[in-house]
């Protein structure tokens, strides 16, 4: 069997004396759409931060395509083709939507730290940024400073920044949080399309979205994975129902 796209091994994380992630083993196969669910405060966002290098692990290991990336800086992990979005919108507020996206496509197109060419004269950058702009439905808002966008538009841009570099592995942390019903439908459609042929790990509270999108689901409760299985098995899992799903009409 080939290596998983993403693999966590005995991952622990404590803030001071408080253990937040308490031994997580998890694996996401290549090309899989994997949902991570669990009650508020379970540690889902923390786990994302550990995978993407935002926080150092207390112990354990993270592997991307079999390579140990534990302890690497976020930009080094990004360069291994893993990109993410944030639960709390994390964009460049004073730059226009278009400039946000241009910054997000640069690395993946191989431009590095280039300062000898004008960005307007880089067709690949502009084509890709324009394509993402249209994909996330913000074409009409191209030149608006990102900080002035409506909330749902900022969420769309947040997703846009994560997918702009065409990563192999996409991590989305509650991408539809706070969106209206129709906005959520749009976003899910977008996520389904952009994750085609890629690996997706998504934290999502809307069970309709989770069960409609995911190939596999992991359930995180109090820093531990209590189940990781196909959606129908998760739905039938008693421990999950008690800990989590029981509160939601499934």
């Amino acid at each position: 069997m080939t290596a998983s796209a993403l693999e966590l091994q005995a991952v622990h994380k404590s803030f001071g004396a408080t253990a937040i992630i308490r031994g997580v083993d998890m694996s996401v196969g290549r090309g899989e759409r994997h949902a991570l669910i669990g009650p508020n405060g379970a540690g889902k966002s923390t786990l994302f931060h550990l995978i993407t290098g935002r926080f150092p692990l207390s112990s354990g290991a993270v592997r991307l395509n079999g390579e140990d990336v534990t302890g690497l800086a976020p930009f080094e992990i990004y360069r291994r083709k893993l990109a993410r979005s944030f639960q709390i919108t994390n964009i460049f507020p004073r730059m226009s939507v278009y400039e946000n996206l241009r910054c997000a496509v640069l690395w993946s197109l191989g431009h590095g730290y280039s300062f000898l060419r004008l960005i307007d004269r880089m067709p690949d950058v502009n084509e890709r940024a324009q394509a993402v702009l249209e994909r996330i439905g913000l074409a009409a808002r191209r030149d608006v400073p990102a900080g002035l966008l409506a909330y749902a538009e900022q969420r769309a841009l947040e997703i846009g920044l994560a997918i702009a570099g065409e990563p192999e592995i996409i991590l989305l942390d509650e991408p539809t949080a706070g969106m209206s019903h129709s906005e959520t439908e749009h976003a899910v459609e977008l996520i389904r399309r952009v994750s085609e042929g890629r690996t997706l790990l998504i934290v999502e509270h809307d069970m309709a979205v989770v069960f409609g999108l995911a190939d596999r689901i992991s359930v995180l409760v109090y820093g531990e994975i209590i189940a990781s299985d196909a959606p129908e098995k998760i739905r039938a899992n008693r421990a999950v129902q008690e800990a989590y799903l029981g509160t939601v009409p499934a």
Binding site: T52, G53, R54, A73, P74, F75, Y78, R79, A83, R84, F86, N90, I91, F92, P93, R94, M95, E99, N100, C103, A104, L106, W107, S108, Y113, L161, G165
Partner: peptide, 16 residues
């Protein structure tokens, strides 16, 4: 400009 606005996010776009 991106570093000015939000240095942390720049890291998650591949840049130091």
């Amino acid at each position: 400009n991106a570093v000015r606005d939000n240095p942390e996010r720049v890291q998650f776009l591949g840049y130091d």
